[in-house]
Amino acid sequence: MNRKTKSKLEVTAIYVILAIVSVVIFYPLIWTFGMSLNQGTSLYSSTLIPENLSLEHYQWLFGPESDYLLWYKNSLIVSIATAVGSVVITSLVAYAFSRYQFVGRKNGLYVFLLLQMFPVMMAMVALYIFLNMIGLLDTLSGLILIYLGGQIPFNAWLVKGYFDTIPRELDQAARIDGAGHLRVFWSVMLPLAKPILAVVALFNFMMPMFDFLLPSIILSSQENYTLAVGLYNFINDQFANNFTRFAAGSVLVALPIAAIYLYLQRYLISGLTAGGTKG
């Protein structure tokens, strides 16, 4: 087999793999969107895109009979608070571990690494009891608190790796000009760390929007439901088979994620690649 034939086979194999991956990724999305436009409440449709398209399910979601907008607001509150809080807390923690030497620094990094190995499921009962003790059970504040605390180890390790790539000479030059610790952090480190902070913001915004397990355990009042919990009740309640409404609500969940991703995409690749260069 000559080199030209081998090259064609490799290119063909690559395109075949890309085609299979595309089908796996896009078929469920197209099917969900098509089902959201289907009349009635049936899960099944004779065609991928229904012949008689209808927006009745989207109209119902925004109507007075639905709590969808309330759940959407709750999810946005939790997601925005988690994203902003994670960026603030993580950047401060990572800056301290990256730039200062203090007792327990090395052990603290090992603890962060160790905590990432345990699934959140292990702490569900403890988190429930903890929120009940402090009076934040069945509240959005309690949910935000758990999200913020749970993401610190991974985010801090990621951002610290990025901070380590920023030359220390910039810090020293700023201090020679009279800048203090917070000034160096705010004026030197944060502007240079925009890519990795964009990654942290996006990941921590996405997680509460899609997470079902933690909100379903912490939240019990319908007015406090997030989107994942509220949409699940469309198909979980007795005699409920509102699969088309569930599909319509799921499609709308992707809108803020897509908007933020498009806005931050110029930072994402550089942030993800640089954040893991040093430990």
Rank of each mutant, 00 (worst) to 15 (best):
S7T: 11
S7P: 01
K8V: 10
L9E: 08
E10N: 07
Y15Q: 13
A19D: 04
S22I: 07
V23C: 11
L29C: 08
F33R: 05
S36E: 09
N38F: 03
Q39A: 12
T41C: 02
T47Q: 13
S54N: 12
H57V: 07
H57R: 14
W60Q: 12
G63H: 03
L70P: 00
W71P: 03
L76F: 15
S86G: 02
L92T: 10
L92W: 00
V93W: 00
A96Q: 03
R99N: 06
Q101R: 13
G108K: 00
L109A: 05
L109M: 15
V111E: 02
V111R: 01
L114S: 14
M117Q: 11
P119F: 08
M122H: 02
L127W: 11
Y128W: 05
I129G: 01
F130E: 09
I134M: 06
G150I: 09
Q151V: 11
P153D: 10
V159N: 06
Y162A: 03
F163E: 02
I166T: 05
E169H: 01
D171I: 10
A174W: 01
A174S: 12
R175M: 15
I176N: 09
G180D: 06
H181T: 13
R183I: 04
V188C: 06
L190T: 06
A201C: 12
P208C: 09
F210S: 10
N224L: 03
Y232G: 15
F239Q: 11
F243A: 06
F246I: 04
A248C: 07
P256S: 08
Y267C: 04
L268I: 15
I269V: 15
I269C: 02
G271K: 07
A274Y: 10
G275L: 06
K278R: 15
